[in-house]
Simulated scan of single mutants.
Amino acid sequence: MIFLIIGLVLFIGIHSIRLIPGGRNAMISGFGPGGFKVLYSLISLVGFGLIIYGKIEAHPTDSLYYPPEWGRTLALFAVPAALILIVAAYTPSHIRRFVQHPMLLAVVLWSGAHLMANGERAAVYLFGAFFVWSVLTLIAAFIRGDHPPKPPEGWGGDVVAIVIGALFAALLARFHLYLFGVGIIG
């Protein structure tokens, strides 16, 4: 499980640079804008790879708790909503305007739903780390006073977010067993 933990530290650590006052600007000053992007991307990719490898290697681990029976049902609704929010984060939409931080809220929904559906130690480390990080980062974003983008003219971005997010959710449900070892649909 050490690879999972190292991966989480790297991935979440580099994504937490904005939580340190002046941390992002200091790194950009030190490495230059291009160097910062390369370093950020490299650390993110290595961390992500270690998370995947570490989770596969650690599976199965002992259970820390028995999730409630409704946890899987919650995930069936929360994960598609999270996927719609992820698409909305990159699309000019009313969803993005209303939510303000759709990517962070998506991670809260995704990780929180998985914590309610799975009590296995490695899963708790994985989803718990992302849940805590996303909640803290969301709070910090609101404290910073990040402003939502201007509302779009039409509803096309919302339709795109919903359709593509729902399509990703359907594909993920279909292939979840093959990708992660846990079946979602029969």
Rank of each mutant, 00 (worst) to 15 (best):
residue 18 R to H: 13
residue 1 M to P: 00
residue 77 F to H: 10
residue 61 T to Q: 04
residue 31 F to Y: 15
residue 55 K to T: 11
residue 29 S to P: 00
residue 64 L to E: 03
residue 181 G to C: 13
residue 141 A to L: 14
residue 122 A to H: 01
residue 114 H to R: 12
residue 26 A to K: 13
residue 97 R to L: 06
residue 144 R to P: 05
residue 180 F to P: 00
residue 45 L to F: 14
residue 29 S to V: 12
residue 8 L to M: 08
residue 15 H to P: 01
residue 82 A to G: 06
residue 117 A to M: 08
residue 38 V to Q: 08
residue 100 Q to S: 11
residue 69 E to N: 11
residue 98 F to C: 05
residue 45 L to E: 04
residue 151 P to G: 02
residue 98 F to T: 09
residue 16 S to A: 15
residue 143 I to H: 12
residue 158 D to Y: 08
residue 29 S to D: 15
residue 31 F to R: 05
residue 80 P to W: 07
residue 40 Y to E: 07
residue 72 R to A: 09
residue 73 T to S: 10
residue 137 T to V: 10
residue 109 L to A: 06
residue 167 L to N: 01
residue 6 I to N: 01
residue 58 A to R: 10
residue 112 G to I: 01
residue 24 R to K: 15
residue 180 F to A: 13
residue 111 S to E: 03
residue 8 L to W: 03
residue 133 W to E: 04
residue 49 G to N: 11
residue 178 Y to T: 06
residue 182 V to R: 10
residue 159 V to N: 07
residue 63 S to T: 10
residue 8 L to I: 08
residue 70 W to G: 01
residue 71 G to N: 04
residue 97 R to T: 08
residue 80 P to C: 13
residue 159 V to A: 12
residue 58 A to L: 08
residue 105 L to P: 00
residue 38 V to H: 09
residue 119 G to F: 04
residue 139 I to W: 15
residue 127 F to E: 05
residue 185 I to R: 13
residue 85 L to E: 02
residue 12 I to A: 09
residue 75 A to P: 04
residue 90 Y to L: 12
residue 92 P to K: 09
residue 69 E to Q: 12
residue 33 P to D: 14
residue 81 A to V: 12
residue 40 Y to H: 13
residue 147 H to M: 14
residue 76 L to W: 10
residue 108 V to H: 01
residue 150 K to N: 06
residue 122 A to C: 06
residue 77 F to T: 09
residue 178 Y to G: 00
residue 40 Y to S: 05
residue 107 V to N: 01
residue 68 P to M: 15
residue 80 P to T: 08
residue 54 G to P: 01
residue 118 N to Y: 02
residue 81 A to W: 04
residue 3 F to V: 07
residue 157 G to E: 02
residue 94 H to S: 09
residue 61 T to G: 00
residue 25 N to V: 15
residue 117 A to W: 02
residue 6 I to T: 05
residue 144 R to L: 14
residue 26 A to L: 15
residue 22 G to R: 13
residue 58 A to H: 08
residue 37 K to C: 04
residue 44 S to V: 05
residue 154 G to K: 12
residue 98 F to I: 12
residue 87 V to G: 02
residue 46 V to F: 03
residue 31 F to C: 07
residue 13 G to H: 07
residue 51 I to F: 09
residue 72 R to N: 07
residue 102 P to W: 03
residue 181 G to A: 13
